[in-house]
């Protein structure tokens, strides 16, 4: 499972300390998914409920202006990072405008 080099006792930090904060970012949990959430940017109201609940976190706020087909303007968008999304579906359940599609992953 581990991608890290198996260091010897001399090189390893004493007592199993981990010196690099948040380095689990190098562990991609996206392959846990069987279904994936897909945010429909035109339907999304930017309510950020999905961003609040995602336990990974695998939903990011992207600071880029977006204009929907119906002409609504937003300063940012919300996107799923599939490197980490485990496909729990909590965001889908929380999305009131039903702006997240739930699509089976191809195997």
């Amino acid at each position: 499972m581990t991608q890290e080099k198996l260091l010897g006792w001399k090189e390893l930090p004493l007592g199993g300390a981990i010196l690099e904060p948040g380095n689990s970012e190098r562990r991609y949990t996206g392959d846990w998914r069987t279904f994936k959430p897909v945010i429909l940017q035109d339907k999304c109201t930017r309510c950020l409920r999905c961003w609040i609940v995602c336990p990974e976190p695998a939903i990011y706020i992207i600071d880029e202006p977006y204009t929907t087909k119906s002409g609504r303007q937003f300063k940012f968008s919300v996107e799923v990072n599939y490197d980490y999304c485990k496909g729990c579906g909590m965001c889908v359940e929380e999305c009131e405008p039903k702006a997240i599609d739930w699509i089976e992953e191809e195997k």
Partner: peptide, 10 residues
């Protein structure tokens, strides 16, 4: 809290 942790999905 960085992603990549091993909590169950959901």
């Amino acid at each position: 809290l960085a992603p990549g942790h091993g909590l169950c999905a959901g």
